[in-house]
């Protein structure tokens, strides 16, 4: 009988599956009931959570002063209830906003606090994020050695927690590339690219492509670099990130310029200038115009040179007037 039942494929497969499914369903129900007790937070925890959510929303919209204010409120509440895990999150958030507004000194101070609290409270996950952010500050301020050391610590801490961060790998790749360690940078960035694709992290995937573009540029593989920036541009236009679109366009323009494709470079620079101007980044738009005038000058298009020189002069004047007004 057993043989005949075993021979029957449906019984052999379906019955254990049903049993397994039912067991899992019951077990999951029990687990949910158990965890339900811990889901509700106190009033202050909820308020801190709300402030954090508002901060993240403001950061995403580029409203950094509002983000800073919200994260500061969240930090005060979390410190009032001695919630160290959330306190570290707030500190890292404030540091990341400080980086966005260019206040590296403040960012570093908050990150020191975040690292100390994470080490004392053994908050491994937060430690990884704190080190990664610290590495970014050091990278941006030209301290490549300590940046590399901290990003490695970050990756190590994340590994201990069973997670892999595509952002950390991107940063490591960029640091290695700038340090001239091209082979290692290429390998790390390839891993970052793969991981970000798997995680469907469009933001960091575009950063991977841009870092690879930068690497290929440093390795004098300009066509490959253009290809990478093209991928980044596609992702950034989909995400509608104006500043990054302008960087992609101007980078591609610079690479075409190096390859002697001046007409193509001029076209891309004009696009970059328009994107920057309409995105409210006047200084970047002025940089585009300077490069554009130089390119048209090399092409011998004097009318274009005069035309864009006039635009540049007018834009510079209105920018200076605006600065005086402030």
């Amino acid at each position: 009988m057993t043989r005949s039942l075993v021979g029957n494929g449906i019984v052999n497969r379906v019955v254990p599956i049903i049993f397994l499914v039912l067991s899992l369903f019951m077990a999951s129900g029990c687990a949910s009931r158990q965890s339900g007790l811990e889901e509700e937070g106190s009033y202050l925890h909820v308020r801190a959570e709300e402030a954090r959510a508002v901060g993240v929303e403001a950061y995403t919209k580029g409203n950094y002063s509002s983000a800073l204010q919200s994260f500061d409120s969240a930090l005060k509440i979390d410190r009032a209830v001695d919630d160290r895990a959330k306190e570290v999150v707030d500190l890292i958030n404030i540091a990341r906003v400080s980086i966005a507004i260019g206040d590296m000194e403040a960012a570093e101070a908050y990150l020191d606090d975040a690292v100390n609290v994470s080490l004392e409270a053994n908050l491994i996950e937060s430690l990884g994020s704190a080190y990664a952010t610290l590495a970014k500050v050091e990278y941006l301020t030209g301290r490549h050695d300590s940046a590399l050391a901290h990003i490695e610590e970050s990756i190590e801490a994340d590994r201990g927690h069973g997670i892999q961060s595509g952002a950390a790998l991107n940063l490591m790749g960029a640091i290695l590339a700038e340090g001239g360690r091209f082979t290692e940078a290429k390998s790390v960035l390839a891993r970052a690219l793969k991981l970000n694709k798997v995680n469907k992290d469009g933001l960091e995937l575009a950063n991977s492509y841009r870092s690879l573009g930068l690497l290929h540029n440093l390795m004098k593989s300009h066509d490959k670099a253009i290809e990478q920036y093209r991928h980044a541009y596609d992702l950034d236009t989909r995400a509608g990130n104006s500043a990054k679109i302008a960087v992609d366009l101007s980078s591609m323009a610079a690479l075409h310029h190096k390859l002697g494709r001046l007409n193509k470079a001029a076209y891309l620079l004009e696009r970059s200038y328009i994107v920057n101007l309409n995105g409210g980044r006047t200084i970047d738009a002025l940089g585009n115009l300077t490069f554009l005038i130089e390119t048209y000058s090399k092409l011998g298009k004097t009318d274009k040179v005069h035309y864009f020189a006039r635009i540049k002069s007018s834009l510079l004047k209105s920018y200076e007037n605006g600065m005086e007004g402030q």
Binding site: R52, E57, V89, T133, K136, A167, A168, L171, L203, K244
Partner: peptide, 10 residues
């Protein structure tokens, strides 16, 4: 929405 993205763009 705990952490804002690191965003390695620069």
């Amino acid at each position: 929405p705990h952490l804002v993205p690191l965003d390695t763009f620069s």
